[in-house]
């Protein structure tokens, strides 16, 4: 099964959660849950750290990191940093297709490096493998309800449905849309009003 089927299984359960994506998953996530609360990252590896920064800053808000094995392995140092803070509102999803999918498809080391062991070893209070969409959804709901930092990992086949709409997304536009959405939903000013607003 591909990542898309798992993302689809939880899309309706994510409410107003913020979601941070990396690589090809973004196109899939936007298709199953279009929202101004979606953010696509650029730097390989940083998806979990950016999601963690959001989770630290907004402890009352659920934040979902949609990670891949290449990015996950690149940012192993980020795991103990996150575990040390134990953000209860962060749900870390890992889609492990064992290749650098967005970078041409060469193999990662994830066929020998066990992500759940790595997360647990780094101090995550909960990390597990699932193998069906039902288990994935059940674990997701459990992570959401239990308010416990969780990594939910699943092995997936590379690739995505061919008929997904292309992601028309300028990254600065994505940033501003995301920040304005947070201003609206958190009812606070975030962006500086700017020089022209001075009285």
């Amino acid at each position: 099964m591909q990542r898309y089927a798992y993302l689809k299984a939880i899309a309706d359960d994510t409410g107003n959660a913020l979601a941070v994506c990396t690589g090809w998953s973004a196109r899939e996530w936007w298709a199953v849950r279009p929202s101004d609360g979606n953010l696509k990252t650029r730097t390989l590896g940083l998806v979990s750290s950016i999601a963690a920064g959001l989770a630290f800053a907004l402890p009352h808000r659920k934040v979902i990191a949609i990670d891949g094995d290449g990015a996950f392995l690149m940012n192993l140092c980020g795991l103990p940093t996150i575990a040390l803070q134990r953000p209860p509102n962060l749900i870390h999803l890992l889609f492990d297709n064992e290749v650098y999918e967005a970078s041409g498809g060469t193999a990662t080391a994830s066929h020998i490096a066990d992500a759940v062991s790595l997360a647990k070893g780094a101090g995550y209070p909960h990390a597990c493998w699932v193998s069906t969409a039902e288990e994935f959804r059940a674990e997701f709901l459990q992570a959401w309800q239990s308010d416990r930092l969780s990594l939910i990992a699943v092995k997936v086949e590379p690739g995505q449905p061919k008929d997904l709409p292309p992601l028309a997304l300028d990254e600065l536009e994505n940033k501003y849309t995301f920040m304005r959405y947070l201003e609206r939903t958190e009812k606070k000013g975030i962006l500086s009003p700017g020089f022209d607003s001075k009285s």
């Binding site: 990252t41 950016i50 999601a51 920064g53 940093t81 940033k175 958190e186 606070k188």
Partner: peptide, 20 residues
Amino acid sequence: IPLCREEEGVGICAGAYLAG
């Protein structure tokens, strides 16, 4: 937030900035 490597700190600070 004590870090293990600096570049993850760039990501954490970016996320925190987006949230105000």
